[in-house]
């Protein structure tokens, strides 16, 4: 079954008197691997946070589909007090289960969590303090949490920003696997070569929609880069 289509309909957002998003409208098809590109400060993360229901915006953001399953989200970083005594296992429990994480992992999610950590190559780190991991390892754990429960919509905010080459390859493989199963992927991505290689569709944003379409068509000429930088 395919994940939902995502429709941004005249979405505008203003923060502290500054226009962050201006009448943004585009559609991400069900089951698509869609990348959002653009310069820093162009409103990409704000658009994603609006999609997550975290930013007060005007206009509409709709998920369209037969059955809307879980949403997986991978933020750029997990900013928290690194001295809080939490192992990787604790973090996964916190994120995936209802049973209080301090009482241990729930049996219901254990297999799924193990599989997700294994897929991201961090299962052997499960008893390590989360705050003691390297930035790349933490990012892999963050990616793993988005896989449990299995998402129908996966939202990625530059998940490879702090990750090493092998980690980035795993991320790429996992994204492709999930997308092949019908998961809709919305991916903020700065790597235009990766976008050309992987994405079904792409939107360039710099407060407004600067371009939208199939990468092979809209990313072939020089102008797009200038439009979003």
């Amino acid at each position: 079954m395919s994940g939902p289509a995502v429709v941004f309909d005249k979405v505008s957002l203003e923060l502290g008197g500054t226009r962050i998003l201006d009448n943004v409208s585009f559609r991400i098809e069900s089951g698509a691997l869609h990348c959002i590109v653009g310069a820093n400060g162009g409103g990409k993360t704000s658009l994603i946070r609006s999609l997550l229901g975290q930013m007060p915006h005007s206009g509409q953001i709709r998920l369209e589909g037969e059955s809307l399953g879980p949403v997986g989200y991978v933020p750029q970083v997990l900013d928290f007090d690194r001295n809080v005594p939490m192992t990787v296992r604790d973090v996964m429990a916190l994120l995936t289960q209802r049973k209080p994480a301090f009482l241990g992992s729930s049996r219901e999610h254990r297999a799924g969590v193990d599989a997700a950590l294994k897929r991201m190559g961090v299962l052997e780190k499960e008893l390590r303090p989360f705050g003691g991991l390297s930035g790349g390892e933490r990012q892999r754990v963050l990616f793993a949490q988005a896989l449990e429960p299995a998402p129908s919509l996966l939202i990625l905010d530059e998940p490879c920003a702090n990750i090493d080459e092998p980690g980035a390859r795993i991320v790429e493989d996992v994204v492709l696997e999930l997308n092949a199963k019908g998961v809709t992927v919305v991916w903020i991505n700065h790597d235009w070569d990766q976008v050309r290689k992987l994405a079904h569709s792409v939107t360039g944003i710099n407060r407004k929609v600067m371009f939208h379409g199939v990468p092979s068509e809209v990313l072939t000429w020089a102008e797009p880069k200038a439009m979003v930088s």
């Binding site: 997550l52 975290q54 989200y73 916190l94 994120l95």
Partner: peptide, 25 residues
């Protein structure tokens, strides 16, 4: 606290992540 412990902690660690998991931060 017992049923909401994880959600409360997550809401303060990363509100975006909490929102994505359907938590009313």
């Amino acid at each position: 606290v017992l049923p909401l412990y994880n959600q409360m902690l997550l809401a303060s660690l990363n509100p975006s992540l909490a929102h994505a998991r359907g938590i009313r931060v």
